[in-house]
Structure formats: C-alpha cells, structure tokens
C-alpha cells in the first residue's frame, strides 16, 4: 500500500516537473494585471500611465 502510494506520488512529481519544464512555468510568478482601457486609448498610451509600483522600501 505504501509502495503504491509512493509510486503514485513519484509519478505525480515527475509529471509536474515535466509539465513545468516544457511549459516554462515558474513558481511564484506574479499574476498579470490588466491595463485600463482608457490608459491604452489615451494619447501616449500606457507610456503616460502611472503603474502600480510603490518604490523601494529597503536600503541599509
């Protein structure tokens, strides 16, 4: 029973690895955000849009 459980788990790990490798997946990638339609249609397009960044909070 345990051997079978391990075999199934192992196959799942190998399958997940193959899927990630051949689809270019990265763990922890950020979810995409949608640029508002008015920003894309405005003169200058998204170049004048204020993106969502908050600036650096670190440093020493």
């Amino acid at each position: 029973m345990f051997n079978r459980f391990y075999l199934i788990l192992g196959i799942a790990i190998v399958a997940a690895y193959a899927f990630i490798t051949f689809n270019g997946w990265e763990l922890g990638s950020p979810t995409p955000q949608q640029l508002p339609a008015e920003a894309r249609n405005a003169p200058g397009g998204y170049r004048s849009f204020h993106f969502w960044h908050e600036g650096y909070q670190g440093g020493k």
Binding site: P30, Q33, Q34, L35, F51, H53, Y56, G58, G59
Partner: peptide, 21 residues
C-alpha cells in the same frame, strides 16, 4: 555600499495585460 531598484513591466501590446517584476 548602496542600492538601486529596478522595477519592470512586460506589457502585451495586443491585450494590455501587464506582468510586473
């Protein structure tokens, strides 16, 4: 002994989806 901070966005020209890093 200092820092720099680079923020980036990959913008899909067709769909307007933005992927930030």
């Amino acid at each position: 002994n200092s820092w720099a901070y680079v923020e980036g966005d990959l913008i899909n020209e067709a769909t307007g989806l933005v992927y930030s890093f």
